[in-house]
Simulated scan of single mutants.
Amino acid sequence: MNEIWETNFGNNLYDFNNVFPVKSIQMAYCCFLFSSRKKLTQTNSLHGNIHSFSGKTGKTLFAREIRFFVALSLFFTISVINGFSQKVERVVSLAPSITENIYLLGAQDKLVGCTSYCKRAIADDVTQVGSVININVEKILALQPDVVLAVQLTKAQDIETLKKLGIRVELFSTPKSFDEICGQTREIGVLLGVENIAEQMFEKFNNQVDSLKGVCEDILPGLKMFFQIGADPVFTVLPNTYMNDFILFCGAENIADSMKHGTITRESVLVKNPDIIIVATMGGFGEKEKKIWSSYKGLNAAKNNRIYLVDSETSCSPTPNNFVKALSDIVQFVTTQ
Rank of each mutant, 00 (worst) to 15 (best):
N196D: 15
K325T: 11
S317H: 03
D210E: 15
E199G: 04
W293V: 08
S312M: 03
V194I: 12
G283Q: 08
C250D: 05
F202Q: 14
G262Q: 14
S268E: 13
L223D: 01
A301L: 14
F246D: 03
E217I: 05
L270S: 01
A301T: 12
N196F: 05
D275W: 02
I307P: 05
S294H: 10
V237F: 01
S258V: 05
C216L: 02
M282V: 07
E313S: 14
G214P: 01
G222L: 09
A280S: 15
F285W: 06
N196P: 01
N244V: 02
L220H: 09
A252I: 00
L191F: 10
G283R: 03
I264K: 02
R186H: 13
F246W: 03
F285T: 08
N206V: 11
I277C: 05
A256Y: 01
S268V: 07
K291G: 06
A231H: 06
E287M: 04
S315A: 15
I264V: 15
G230Y: 12
G193F: 07
K291H: 07
M201A: 06
K297G: 10
P233M: 04
L248A: 13
G262I: 01
Y308D: 07
C250K: 05
P233K: 06
V190T: 12
M225P: 02
W293P: 06
M259F: 02
I307N: 04
E253W: 00
G283Y: 07
N305V: 12
V194P: 13
F285M: 13
Q184N: 13
E267N: 05
L299K: 07
V271L: 10
H261D: 13
N207D: 08
I255D: 07
E187F: 09
T314F: 00
K290Q: 14
M282C: 13
D257L: 07
L212M: 11
V215I: 15
K291S: 14
F249T: 01
G230Q: 11
K204A: 11
M201W: 08
I292H: 04
G189Y: 07
N206D: 14
V215S: 13
T236A: 15
E217M: 01
